[in-house]
Write a protein that binds this DNA or RNA. Sequence first.
DNA 1: GTCTATAAATGGATAGAC
DNA 2: GTCTATCCATTTATAGAC
Lengths: 209, 209
Amino acid sequence: MEPSTKEKLLDTALDLFSVNGYTTVSIRDIGKVVGIKESSIYYHFKNKEDILHTLLKQAEQGMQLRKDSFNQALHAVTKITCGNFIMAGIAYIEHYLLEERIYKWIRMLTIEKQRNEEAATIYHRFFFAAPLEHHTKVFSYMMETGYIKEDDPVELAAEYQSLILFVFQKYFSGASMVAPESKQAAREELEVLLKRFYTRYFDREEMVE
Amino acid sequence: MEPSTKEKLLDTALDLFSVNGYTTVSIRDIGKVVGIKESSIYYHFKNKEDILHTLLKQAEQGMQLRKDSFNQALHAVTKITCGNFIMAGIAYIEHYLLEERIYKWIRMLTIEKQRNEEAATIYHRFFFAAPLEHHTKVFSYMMETGYIKEDDPVELAAEYQSLILFVFQKYFSGASMVAPESKQAAREELEVLLKRFYTRYFDREEMVE
DNA sequence: GTCTATAAATGGATAGAC
DNA sequence: GTCTATCCATTTATAGAC
């Protein structure tokens, strides 16, 4: 189905906001890309801020939705091995954080969070509150089932997320596009760090590498 | 000594850029705060971009300078104990990353890095290249002197910096000012995480808490 | 739904007086 | 060094025709 003009406007606005920031982008710029005059945009949105606000709402909901589907895929993993554990971390970055739309949301939020409270809240929930809550549950479950030695699941979750964030930002927080070399380097670095994590906390020492 | 007009302009520009971003702030805004007309600003700077570029250069140099003096203070620590190790990490955040001017630079770079390559480079050096290189040296030294078990110092440095970054961003990456409660919460969380780190890698088990 | 036309404000930048 | 005055481009937003 062909996307509606309103959807095209939102897509384009996200493209531009995520690189140049909300204030830098003019309503003319958006219209030019979509192929309609700026005045027509006011038929679809009350004003410029309305576009940003709609995008922020979409980001908030969309991140939750995609996270859910991503988690379902994770739970399909039956056997926890070191290889699976590392693969899950790599997938978290490559198929979730770097997923085209989510990555654009992240970049938009990174700019807007500095002056927009709503953006700051969503950013924080996305990178801290939500994943920490999720990881805590997973590690709790792993302790109950004996995969992991007894420990504080909240602290494990923090350690885990700090590694994900570190690698993600080290390789993908700049101005340039995501290069395949960066992806490869990020994968290798995360692999090393998660292997250490696995070795530290997991009880059974399965095949490593 | 009274700061020169040029210095006042730069300070004000940093204040405004670090919250609203370069493009959002007008040259009129800066002049208004300093108390001179916009046209007078062109006596001190070639154009608006010249102001940003001067600030970026200052950030690049200033971060190096302040880091050096900070490191000297660290090296004055004679005995490495768990308490000292944790205190060093807390000081890294509270007296370096949160130092007024550095914190403003960080906020400015966070916005500009998305579209400005120069800003992206400085940001990366500041949060990754420079600290990782430094930590690697420190951990190498600690291994040679037997403080730490044999391990890969580069990987230890990555783990350490990931914890610092995690706590810093979790509590100080939003739109609002740095609240004392956030500072306290950040300190407590970092304390827990660094204590785990210390216990994991340091050989001698000294008084803990 | 999209257009033209236009209003009203704000932006960066320069010239020249003092 | 700072001012007034001014230029010109661009911005958000609205009114009304089609």
